[in-house]
């Protein structure tokens, strides 16, 4: 076994893993926060929300920005994330500690979030281009009023926000920011609060938009 491990050893892999960790925060998490703030304009009514959408859609260099700062980072993070799932194993039955559950949930939530994001991008970004319809308050309302889509969004948001909050906690350890037990506990509390807050914001937006 030790020989096959030695064969596998190469420096490239180290960089890939660290890049995966970095991409999760810069830019994916940053974009997530921006996205939730933009969504929250739903609370200010259709005009305000449509105004934000139109502003974002009228940005210069929109497509390059979307690909460089959203599409590609999520794609690379996801591809490597799937590889991480493959290299993981489960032993919750013997070692049912909270952190071990989080280890499992980080992987499961990543996969659910990926499915959710893929559907979400199709529904609100690609389909509108293909079938030439406008994405606005009305379109979002129509989608969110479909019970299965709404349910899928709630599940997707739970997964995404867990992955986001726990991911930030992991990021701090992977980069050696939080080292000791105490600092990891404190960062855990901080990121839980941020995660719950962002989830509450997102949930409120999709509930309010249903009318």
């Amino acid at each position: 076994m030790s020989e096959s491990v030695a064969e596998k050893i190469d420096v490239k892999h180290f960089y890939l893993r660290r890049i995966h960790s970095l991409l999760g925060v810069f830019p994916v998490s940053i974009f997530l926060v921006e996205h939730m703030i933009a969504n929250a304009f739903i609370l200010k009514g259709p005009e305000a929300y449509n105004g934000v959408i139109n502003l974002l859609r009228s940005l210069p260099y929109l497509i390059p920005i979307e690909i460089t700062f959203i599409g590609l980072p999520i794609f690379l993070h996801a591809v490597y994330g799937i590889y991480i799932c493959y290299t993981s194993s489960l032993n919750l039955k013997s070692y049912g500690y909270a952190k071990n559950w989080f280890y499992f949930l980080q992987r499961v939530s990543g996969l659910i979030a990926l499915a959710f994001i893929a559907y979400h991008i199709w529904d609100f970004r690609i389909a509108s281009e293909v079938f030439h319809f406008e994405v606005n308050y009305e379109a979002v309302r129509r989608s969110m009023r479909v019970p299965w889509i709404f349910s899928f969004y709630v599940v997707g948001l739970v997964a995404t926000m867990f992955h986001f909050a726990n991911g930030l906690w992991l990021f701090c350890i992977t980069w050696g920011i939080t080292i000791g037990k105490k600092s990891q506990r404190i960062s855990g509390i901080i990121f839980s609060v941020i995660g719950f807050a962002l989830f509450a914001m997102a949930l409120q937006s999709i509930i309010v938009v249903r009318g």
């Binding site: 050893i9 892999h13 180290f14 991480i84 290299t87 993981s88 500690y97 952190k99 280890y103 992977t174």
Partner: peptide, 17 residues
């Protein structure tokens, strides 16, 4: 700083337990 190095830890943290 290689494949299988410290970065691969998934922080299940069973080890300390």
């Amino acid at each position: 700083m290689v494949s299988g190095g410290a970065q691969d830890c998934g922080n299940a943290q069973n080890c300390v337990q």
